[in-house]
Write a protein that binds this DNA or RNA. Structure first.
Length: 425
DNA sequence: TCTGGGGTCCTAGGACCC
DNA sequence: TCTGGGGTCCTAGGACCC
């Protein structure tokens, strides 16, 4: 039998802000989405204040004015680096791991079966806090789905932040109390359909008839049921290159001008290309979209998308930007106030097995040019060198008025320490 | 004034092939 | 009267995740 652990950072973004701002300890913090639009992370204190996940920030701004709530723009440079610190610390304790998201990792504990797993997990938890400043919770179970449930229990009910759902005697009790909509892989819609079949809890789903589940749902739900029964169906996955790469942003203001839209789209395309080259892939085609702000009922609405296939796969920013601009020209309609545009790189393949187009001229310098572009930006900071199509003014840029410093990745923004002077008598 | 961004997998249906 | 069967690939849409 396998043993999995799910390690999850508590309120990750909020915790990252706290590491470098200790006076925020015990205070209500929220971290906002791009454009300072929605609340995407909350400290426990903010949850107690009643701030819901995904709430539009403008509805809660008043609490900030009263100093009851502290808000931060998303600082992905900081969170990405802190995540990397947590993950590499985890790897020290358990090399066989899967980084599931920026703040979660599954561990395979099969090698440690002879250890006291609760004790070992407690040790991991303490070390991560000491080394990185980030609090984590750890759930242990025979399948990933059960480890996820154990993690919920660890977070809610235990002071130690560690919980093992393996013993059958306690498992039944936990599953009996666990609502079906909180199970990993079951969202709002599936939960609704399950409830119509009178399945309310994890225990009821576990006892459901597999054939019945298969006829009403897909193989995904069938796997979930097996996993609840303790039969592992979802293995630990090693790092795979992405199958598609997307880059898009809402504008800081509504945009009407095609030139500005082109600039923004070119900028997003360039960002996507950096990601593409980082994972050493080529793209076979792109899809681009744009739309107006659908929250504004009183304004004319328009949205559209289109795709383009390259005759040979590429990772050349200027080539891809060119294609993106052509696509945009096709779907752009004047007279609308646009809110967002974006690009998706599709049909990715590894750079090592490129299929050339026989009739296309060779762009031999492209590879070298892109390498140079990437290495300059890596050494001298993002956007040191960029393609002119991305624009210089960038008046469409997203808002981020509450950004903290990039404490760990930028020399100019290191944390400052003030020594208190003793006052003279 | 203000409402995120980036992914994955599965299924059904149509086009096409032999 | 009668109109195949089996396969692949692609795409759109729906569901989920963080």
């Amino acid at each position: 039998m396998s043993i999995f652990a799910l390690v999850d950072c508590n309120n990750f973004y909020a915790s990252c802000e706290r590491v470098f701002n200790p006076h925020l300890e015990g205070k209500a913090i929220v971290v906002l989405s791009n454009n300072d639009g929605c609340v995407v992370a909350r400290s426990n204190e903010a949850k107690k204040l009643g701030v819901p996940m995904g709430a539009p920030f403008h509805e809660w701004r008043v609490l900030c004015d009263k100093k009851k709530l502290y808000a931060f723009s998303s600082n992905y440079a900081l969170y990405g680096d802190m995540s990397h610190r947590v993950m590499s610390s985890l790897q020290y304790f358990c090399p066989e791991m899967e980084i599931y998201s920026i703040d979660e990792a599954f561990l395979s504990l099969d090698e440690y079966k002879n250890k006291d797993l609760l004790l070992y997990s407690t040790q991991i938890r303490k070390s991560i806090k000491k080394w990185t400043g980030i609090p984590v919770s750890i759930g242990i179970g025979p399948t990933k789905t059960l480890a996820k449930i154990a993690n919920r229990v660890a977070k809610k009910n235990t002071a130690e932040g560690v919980f093992d759902i393996s013993p059958l005697s306690i498992r039944k009790n936990i599953l009996e109390q666990f609502p079906v909509e909180d199970i990993w892989g079951i969202g709002f819609r599936l939960a609704k359909r399950l409830k119509e079949l009178n399945i309310q809890t994890a225990l009821e789903l576990r006892h459901a008839n597999l054939k019945m589940i298969r006829t009403h749902f897909s193989v995904v739900m069938e796997r979930t049921v097996e996993e609840l029964r303790g039969i592992s169906c979802i293995p630990l996955e090693t790092i795979q290159p992405r199958k598609q790469i997307m880059s898009s942003r809402s504008f800081g203001k509504l945009v009407t001008d095609l030139n500005e839209l082109e600039e923004a789209l070119s900028h997003y395309a360039a960002r996507a290309c950096v990601k593409l080259r980082k994972q050493k892939s080529l793209t076979g085609g792109i899809s681009i979209f744009l739309h107006t702000n659908h929250f504004r009922d009183n304004e004319p609405q328009y949205g559209n998308s289109t795709t383009y296939k390259f005759s040979e796969p590429t990772c050349d920013s200027s080539f891809i930007i060119n294609a993106a601009k052509k696509c945009l020209g096709k779907i752009f309609r004047p007279g609308f106030r646009y809110q967002k545009t974006g690009i998706m790189l599709l049909d990715l393949s590894p750079q090592t097995i490129k299929q050339f187009d026989l009739f296309l001229p060779r762009r031999n310098k492209s590879e070298l040019l892109m390498q140079t572009l990437d290495s300059i930006n890596e050494n001298f900071g993002k956007d040191s060198l960029f393609i002119a199509a991305e624009g210089i003014q960038r008046s469409w840029k997203t808002r981020c008025q509450h950004m903290s410093r990039r404490y760990t990745t930028c020399w100019d923004e290191l944390a400052t320490v003030f020594a208190k002077r003793k006052s003279k008598k």
